[in-house]
Design a protein around this nucleic acid. Sequence first.
DNA 1: TTTCCAATTCGGAATGACTACGATTTACTT
DNA 2: AAGTAAATCGTAGTCATTCCGAATTGGAAA
Lengths: 139, 139
Amino acid sequence: MNFELAIERLKSEGFKRTPSREAILRLLELEDRYLSAGDVKKALAADHPTMSQDTVYRNLTSFSELKILEETELGGERKFRMHCDRHGHHHHFICMDCGRTEELDVCPMEQVSRALPAFVIDDHKFEVYGQCPDCRSAS
Amino acid sequence: MNFELAIERLKSEGFKRTPSREAILRLLELEDRYLSAGDVKKALAADHPTMSQDTVYRNLTSFSELKILEETELGGERKFRMHCDRHGHHHHFICMDCGRTEELDVCPMEQVSRALPAFVIDDHKFEVYGQCPDCRSAS
DNA sequence: TTTCCAATTCGGAATGACTACGATTTACTT
DNA sequence: AAGTAAATCGTAGTCATTCCGAATTGGAAA
Ligand SMILES: [Mn+2]
Ligand SMILES: [Mn+2]
Ligand SMILES: [Zn+2]
Ligand SMILES: [Zn+2]
């Protein structure tokens, strides 16, 4: 998802356009990987030194609820990235060195649903962790 | 894994047999589901009112490193359960109401490895969340 | 353009999970 | 029974996240 589309979704949902929100969304569009709230705050410190952590957390949470961002939990921290719009449902390989992701189209949920007919299935998480080719050759 | 086997593994790794460790392992054997450190501390408060949280966390971490326990991160909390010994590698359905788990033999990692030949794959997480049949009929 | 107000932000305090640490106790060896 | 390293205790510290009241502001309405 790009910045303009995210701003449109905000407006259509009745959210105001603010400098904080613009800065957070531009950063996430640029970085294209999972960032923590702390990462975001640090990256914006130069241009927005007074942006409070409350603002960062509140907006990241709102964006996640609006499906503007994807969210995961990694190493005891919430992490956010721009929601990928290239395909439909998919999962990620995540590089533990640089945070870059690679999209995975494989998802085993059809088999799981068949194996658990009496269960209500609400959600699932499938993530693969390791080292991307760039970080591999650099190390 | 049962209590006796866990105690054996502790002894063979040079860990001492203490009342704290016995109590934690007995509880986890009995509960047979994911518990947080706080859950463990509360459940043992009656019989072991002075057990410190340091003791709970340190032992849960040790047990996890020794593969006596399985560990996951759920809702911002580390959770632990007795390591299942019925099969080899597998994943879990987790009931978000009662915490009970159902083992899943499906794992898509062979496909992922084939799809990402240039990546180093160190780990992966696959979990399915929902409501088990008991909680479904109770709600 | 000016007014207005709910939404947003700010700054800082509170929370909760987790870790660190020195002092004390204890399990196991000899 | 003595000795010692391991384990525990109690408490304080850390860090991510949430909460809250006061001040600001985006955008609609006048
Ligand atoms: Mn993606
Ligand atoms: Mn299992
Ligand atoms: Zn999936
Ligand atoms: Zn697997």
